[in-house]
Design a binder for these strands. Structure first.
Length: 519
RNA sequence: GGCCCCGUCGUCUAGCCCGGUCAGGACACAGGCCUUUCAAGCCUGUAACACGGGUUCAAAUCCCGUCGGGGUCGCCA
């Protein structure tokens, strides 16, 4: 039975690299019909864990990465919070002490630091002298009488090598002499990550530890702990990390301003912020950040698109298949298909997937996707009426693939604004209305518009063509002015669709109102 | 600095293990067509085996070295 885990710290947000790790664990597990466990690594935190955990759990669920055991769902090995598992760790520490794989150390932090610096000065690798290691009760008493407190350190081997067969990287060799006597328990009895992680992996019966590459160097000490405790070793698989756009450096939430120099990245951020600003959300990069999954949720990306993109970040099936349903991903995923080199996060490619997925969304679902956005900005009232839904459907239909994320519906505010409150973009006025002859032409056009029957796209188009012929002008000479007058913008969906959706009355009122800007 | 990992178009990648197709696909980019704007669509194009040595009739692929990038060396996780 395959059992894997994802072990986030409650940091308050779900990092894009973290989701990728979670996703690969999940895919691997589902592929093998196993169980995926969510464990919360909160040994360091005390308060606000719930609050800091929520965005992570919500984000995973939103993407459909469901866990079989863990917070909210429980499970046979509960609790799944490390902060609640201290007794397991302490028991393990006791055992390590008994078998001689760990020792009580009475060194003061500054004494260790001094040794470390001395080693550095002499350009030799740091190896702790074990001067304050208590081997007997006698030693312990002596150190304690000096007012010292004990931590527990691993008594690592100082010679020989360790070979790990990593499922992704293959055979990796480590020299024990490079390893330090890591602290596993503090003076106050609390335990540290490596110990906790190994104990839980055992207690939870984890068979495959699939995690990011930065843990590869940590593996020897974890293997040491596991072996000393007599645990069977899990299989290890170290994933390449997700790198910055156009670089090989690990993606980081804090370096966003640097990524913004990348044009494609900046475009996507700009798009997201436009929507967030309309929603009245905070748009500072600290909270609204494309390295964080919530960014995509708020902008209205589709979870399937993100999953598909993320799956291909470091994994591939073959030389051509790019579109995968969730089921296909599960069917085909394998660790052998995972690449070794880091993969740069490319928001533009994610965007391309979003585009493809959005096209495939049926109208009914698209309406559901978009309605919450319209409600949030107050353009439509909460339980949308049939008439509103009808109108939204018309807009979506006419907009077609122009609406790439659910939040893009907010570009079409002019369909919901009262005629006398329509806002005109300065550029629209400048470019399309303030041209000689526009006013008169618009007036004559309005007269025609008043009589079109039925007021539908095809008929409107015919009328427009007749108008152009009669005036002896080109289509472009009138249509841009009409667009500006009726929508207040210079871009948007097909003019005849827009007119039809707005209806005769609105169109006439808006043209009338726009005449004040025209010459 | 020690140790470990990695290195194919700008980006994601296929090919590498089992040497032999103009090194294939996708995103992005450029040009063109279409066009009422935008978006899309269609066509075309630019673009990579990090470098240097071997081995071989033949090397992205095997061997050695160099360089480059990254990770890790905590009483963080």
């Amino acid at each position: 039975m395959v059992r894997t885990r994802f072990a986030p710290s409650p940091t308050g947000y779900l990092h894009i690299g973290g989701v990728r790790t979670a996703l690969f664990n999940w895919l691997f597990t589902r592929r093998h019909g196993g169980q995926f466990i969510l464990r919360i690594d909160d040994t360091d935190q005390q308060r606000h864990v719930e609050e800091a955990l929520r965005p992570i759990l919500d984000g995973l669920r939103w993407l459909g990465v469901e866990w079989d055991e863990g917070p909210d769902v429980g499970g046979p090995y509960a609790p799944y919070y490390q902060s609640q598992r201290l007794e397991f760790y302490q028991k393990a520490v006791q055992r390590l002490l008994e078998v001689g794989a760990a020792y009580r150390d009475y060194a003061r932090p500054e004494e260790i630091q001094a040794e470390r610096e001395a080693a550095q000065r002499e350009k030799r690798p740091f190896v702790y002298s074990r001067r304050w290691m208590a081997e007997t009760a006698e030693d312990a008493r002596r150190f304690e009488s000096q007012g010292r407190q004990a931590v527990v350190r691993l008594k690592m081997p100082r010679e020989g090598t360790l070979v790990i067969d990593d499922l992704i990287r293959g055979r990796v060799e480590f020299d024990w002499s490079q390893e330090q006597d890591h602290v596993i328990q503090r003076a106050d009895g609390t335990c540290l990550y490596h110990l906790a992680s190994v104990v839980d992996d055992y207690e939870f019966r984890i068979t495959h530890v699939i995690r990011a590459e930065e843990h590869l160097s940590n593996t020897p000490r974890q293997v040491f702990i596991a072996q000393a405790l007599g645990y069977p070793l899990p299989q290890y698989a170290h994933l390449p990390f997700v790198a910055e756009p156009g670089s090989r450096v690990k993606l980081s939430k804090r370096k966003l301003d640097k990524y913004l120099k990348n044009k494609e990245f900046a475009e996507r951020v700009e798009h997201g912020r436009r929507i967030a600003a309309r929603l009245g959300l905070a748009t500072e990069l600290e909270v609204f950040n494309p390295v964080v999954v919530d960014f995509y949720r708020q902008v209205g990306y589709l979870p399937e698109a993100i999953v598909n993109y993320l799956a291909l970040l470091g994994w591939s099936l073959d030389d051509k298949t790019e579109m995968f349903t969730r089921e296909e991903l599960i069917r085909h995923f394998s660790l052998e298909g995972v690449n070794k080199a880091p993969a740069s996060f490319d928001p533009q490619k994610l965007w391309a997937f979003q585009d493809r997925y959005m096209r495939a969304v049926p109208m009914e679902k698209k309406i559901e996707l978009v309605l919450p956005y319209l409600e949030k900005v107050g353009w439509v009232s909460a339980p949308a009426s049939a008439a509103v839904r009808q109108k939204v459907a018309q807009i979506l239909q006419a907009a077609g693939d122009r609406i790439k994320t659910a939040g893009d519906i907010l570009d079409y505010g002019y369909f919901f604004t009262p005629d006398d409150r329509l806002e005109y973009e300065p550029g629209a006025i400048e470019k399309r209305l303030r041209a000689p002859g526009v006013a008169d032409r618009l007036r004559r056009f309005a007269q025609q518009l008043a009589q079109v029957e039925p007021f539908e796209p095809a008929m409107l188009e015919r009328m427009m063509h007749d108008f152009v012929m009669a005036e002896g002008i080109k289509l472009g000479d009138i249509i841009h002015a009409v667009r500006a007058a009726v929508t207040g913008t210079t871009v948007g969906l097909g003019m005849f669709d827009a007119l039809a959706i707005l209806g005769r009355e609105s169109c006439l009122a808006r043209i009338e109102r726009a005449l004040q800007y025209a010459v």
